[in-house]
Design a protein around this nucleic acid. Structure first.
Lengths: 237, 237
DNA sequence: GAGTGGTCTAGACCACTAT
DNA sequence: TAGTGGTCTAGACCACTCT
């Protein structure tokens, strides 16, 4: 019958519903608790399932809910703080970081990475794929590009080792919103298209860019932290 | 008639559609160009309007499209890089920054801010509302909290001036995904609930937290940049 | 008033997880 | 096999902007 839309609502239903649910989450639910299923919830609030889902989607975006197909909708724990400051992460693969190498291959760098590295498109490089975990859950995947030596004989691990022996000049990072590619989604245990935070890093040595990476962080579960007190303390000493 | 879902598609229609549209945007459209309206596009690709919209929503999330009610859907320019590194933004309101003060009021700090400032909930503070612009467009709104002097007589502007005369110890920043509150959405010329990047900053003086702010950046148009070469260069000198 | 994107409905089937 | 969230449809009305 279409909708009736009486009540002269300047405020959309899903928006009001989201507010209602937020309050319910704050007051009546515990972290990890399973909510009623979508059909029941929609009936309870007198809206169509699609409208309810619009509210749930926003709450998931805000990190309040976690939805899993075949399981149900649960109340999400607070987001995990993930340190992405240069102090924590001086060179990629430095001992003690919480990244785990999944594999590597030799590639020709794509255009976007070539720009970051200040090299020609298609120049040879090692591509190292890594996963970052926090509290046992995967929170990020990364593609790390290391320009290959002219001989082309070294392994990815050797290239990483060589990197650690160099002088660090700085890092440049950008953060933007994206949606998970199919493969990243699989590694992060999410659906393709889920919102993610794209962290692009350019590692600088004294003679220019020495490495570049694109990391994909789960936006629903992560809060990126940039603590700059470390650098400031170095300045003061 | 419901859907028919033949073709045994492991890949959702909206996902495939998004890929198709991405290629079209790369090859056949110019920045600023207006796309056909949603009903026509849906018909052209043989899908329901809701399915088309699911694809458009993702493209908007990725910053490829801009949709405006009553106008149409246009091809978005590349995201603007917005510097949020400490080097750029040493103290809030430092001369030369691109923030503009919209107003201020005296408030009692809410719980989340009290935690950041290391003070009691409800302690008095100046709340300064600011807007940041890039290329003429608003890209962020901010609520900046400055603890009030014990006497309580100073103005917000005086409190800001006092801040600038203090020694900077460091900053702590976090970035996470959120959705725009009604008022922020209005200031940013977006709809309520639009995806935004929430940047929380704690400004540290030698005797502890001296200010705290929560900034709301448009996620569709902004790429946050953290260039750390500045601090590194200082270290070297 | 015409045209656009935004909201909403009622109902269907699909993919996945558990039992 | 039953139950969940994910996808999809066809159609309606609303809020907004432009002419």
């Amino acid at each position: 019958m279409g909708t009736t839309q009486l009540e002269a609502a300047p405020e959309p239903k899903y928006w009001h519903l989201k507010t209602t649910l937020t309050e319910a989450l704050d007051n009546e639910f515990e972290v990890g608790q399973i909510l009623p299923n979508e059909r029941d919830l929609a009936a309870r609030y007198g809206v169509a399932r699609a409208t309810l889902r619009q509210a749930l989607e926003q709450l998931e975006l805000e990190g309040r809910l976690q939805r899993r197909r075949g399981i149900g909708t649960t109340v999400a724990p607070p987001r995990v703080g993930v340190d992405v400051s240069p102090a924590h992460d001086r060179w990629p693969g430095a001992p003690g970081d919480d990244w785990q190498i999944d594999g590597s291959e030799r590639v020709e760098v794509p255009a976007a990475v070539a720009r970051l590295l200040g090299r020609a498109v298609g120049c040879p490089a090692h591509l190292i794929r890594r996963t970052r975990r926090a509290h046992g859950q995967p929170v990020a995947t990364e593609e790390l590009y290391l320009p290959a030596a002219p001989t082309g004989a070294e392994t990815a691990r050797a290239a990483l080792g060589a990197l650690h022996r160099r002088e660090l000049q700085g890092q440049e990072r950008t953060v933007e919103l994206g949606s998970a590619r199919a493969e990243d989604a699989r590694r992060l245990d999410r659906l393709p298209g889920s919102p993610v935070l794209l962290v692009t890093t350019r590692y600088l040595a004294d003679d220019g860019p020495a490495a570049a990476s694109v990391a994909t962080y789960r936006a629903d579960t992560c809060r990126l932290t940039f603590g700059d007190t470390g650098a400031m303390e170095l300045l003061a000493s």
